[in-house]
Design a protein around this nucleic acid. Sequence first.
DNA 1: GATTCTGTATAGATAATATGTACAGTTAAA
DNA 2: TTTAACTGTACATATTATCTATACAGAATC
Lengths: 127, 127
Amino acid sequence: MGKALVRVEEGSPVPAYRQIVDQIRVHLNSGVLKAGDKLPSVRTLSMQLGVHFNTIAEAYRRLANEGWIDLQHGCRAVVCMHQPAKAIATEEADLLCQRLRHLLAEMRLKGIPVVVVQREVGAVFER
Amino acid sequence: MGKALVRVEEGSPVPAYRQIVDQIRVHLNSGVLKAGDKLPSVRTLSMQLGVHFNTIAEAYRRLANEGWIDLQHGCRAVVCMHQPAKAIATEEADLLCQRLRHLLAEMRLKGIPVVVVQREVGAVFER
DNA sequence: GATTCTGTATAGATAATATGTACAGTTAAA
DNA sequence: TTTAACTGTACATATTATCTATACAGAATC
């Protein structure tokens, strides 16, 4: 039994649909979800996560707007062949670095050792 | 002219008061804000950031609830002498690692080179 | 064709967020 | 001491965001 595709954190201040978008986007990038793959139906996933299926539909709509998946009435969402360009403005990069610094500071504050962080970096960027 | 203590990202989905809380908490941990320091008044900071002063007040209230600052009617907020314990449950650590992975994946997706990330890690954790 | 699966559209309830305004405590100058 | 200017607070309100309920419409399968 493979790990669930998505997990929704109950008490989080970040809304469910955005948690879902973020996690699926990660899987799209990491290759867990490949072009042509079909996503679970909004109702299937909604029951797994314990949220309303319209919440899943909202998440899918966002991903479609970003160019990650194709939505067509009546059939399951499918991962696009031509995924979105990865160009990025330097300003946006700065913003991401800022978010990274804040998160790292929080982790350091909470006593998480640097080696753990380095391991995550290595895992994501493929050393 | 030192850098501003806080910066609120306009179009962000994360609410202004939480951006403020997060950034000030980072400064509290990093030592930019030390015990006994006074924070800017809610009105002063609100004008710098272009939000209502009640939004700043809300942020200060959160930080006070977390034990970072003392609030007293009539005088400016002041950084506590006894700052909150830094104990952390493993579950919370897992959550932080998960957030880190997602952010890293996003950065990689956006084409940010790994060396930039490693530099940030080194800066925060003091190589 | 009928059933069952799929995503969609719209309205409504609830909660989160930001603001407007009046208030009350503290400080410092007059 | 009085006054004025500064501080955080309280509460009502407007707006927006989020989630849900329900009915609908396209596609697949029998």
